[in-house]
Design a protein around this nucleic acid. Structure first.
Lengths: 207, 207
DNA sequence: GTCTATATCGTGATAGAC
DNA sequence: GTCTATCACGATATAGAC
């Protein structure tokens, strides 16, 4: 999970694949869209096949099971092993702002948002997807950050950040709660950055 | 939505209803459990009927459609029109702590948690449920609080609080991300209270 | 008030022909 | 590589007997 996709020089993903048969990629594109819109349980192989103008049996032929399609479709177009060190590298007193801005920038990019929305939508009702999300957040994000913190309660801090940012994304992009949904990204960065900063470097408790 | 349930003096909800036929209540209990565990789309009338030891056709007889069952099952065991004024009434400089503690107290009560988890699980993939959640958060919670704030950006403040608290609940109770899931409630109250406080009464922006 | 029977439709998965 | 046909289910909803 979470590898950078090899975008082979050509035009962006839209319309049909040119080289080879392209069927496999067409199925993956349709699958990504379906899982994004309806989550794992709500998406169906037949519907994905229809969208890709392909026979449902082909989906099984390429990926075996529905879970197989999901796993293949979930490769993120960004790489936490690159981004997290970048955020950690700079001035620690502004890490909250950098992290909040990076998070919102990724979510504002519709193409990057897709797989994450798909994973969240799926994880809420599907236990396997929940495990994928848990492991992704824990290992790719939380563990990397926690390792670099020297504050007390280092293990609790990154999950608190995750809770704040995931909650924001959920209400803004999935539930579309106003006025959060149409707020300016920089307004939200400014509002949330101090929270993230405190969770990572500040005082957590009363005593 | 969000009325207090009339608990008629007797024993707590477990086992079978004694008075009357009780079938209707048995169906609602089973429905609440099913929607809580699997969300709207994942729950089925047949499965609810099985759980209630009742014929599936009876469910339709009592509630018409699946949406009808859902709506009836979603009455919360707490009343925002009572709780919100209580939180707002006290010392404004400690409103963050009061709100965070109230929120976590409700979520720690498994019986109270059920319907909210059901609504969240459902809202993430079902548009009708998303509308219900949106309206509940907007009207029952956000609007009531925003009305009482005299700070600038009063409209944006309660949704920010909602994002923080919903995110916390999602990762702790639904996704069960450690160490958030097994953290002591008071630890979380202490961690989150200053955030809530700042969103409601503090400085939101950089300028 | 309760249940049988059925209409209509969708699902994931597989075997096997071409 | 692609598609037809099918297995074995499950879904919501309705009509109508008892």
């Amino acid at each position: 999970m979470a590898r950078v996709e090899a975008e082979p020089g050509g035009p962006r993903r839209s319309g049909r694949r040119p080289a080879g048969s392209g069927t496999r990629e067409a199925i993956l594109d349709a699958a990504r869209a379906a899982f994004t819109q309806r989550g794992y349980d709500g998406a169906s192989i037949r519907q994905i096949a229809r969208e890709a103008s392909v026979d449902p049996a082909l989906v099984h032929h390429y990926f075996g099971t529905k879970q197989g399609v999901f796993t293949e479709a979930m490769h993120f177009p960004f790489d936490p092993s690159v981004l997290v060190p970048e955020v950690l590298a700079g001035d620690r007193s502004q890490i909250g702002e950098r992290l909040a801005r990076l998070f919102l920038t990724i979510w504002e990019d519709e193409q990057a948002r897709g797989p994450i929305v798909a994973l969240i939508r799926s994880a809420v009702t599907n236990e396997q997807a929940a495990t994928m999300l848990r492991e992704f957040v824990s290992e790719a994000l939380v563990a990397r950050v926690a390792r670099e913190l020297d504050a007390p309660d280092a293990a609790l801090r990154p999950p608190l950040v995750a809770a704040q940012l995931v909650g924001l994304a959920l209400l803004r992009y999935v539930i579309k709660l106003e006025p959060l949904a149409s707020a300016d990204p920089e307004t939200l960065v400014a509002a949330v950055a101090p929270t993230v900063q405190r969770y990572l470097t500040g005082d957590l408790g009363p005593g």
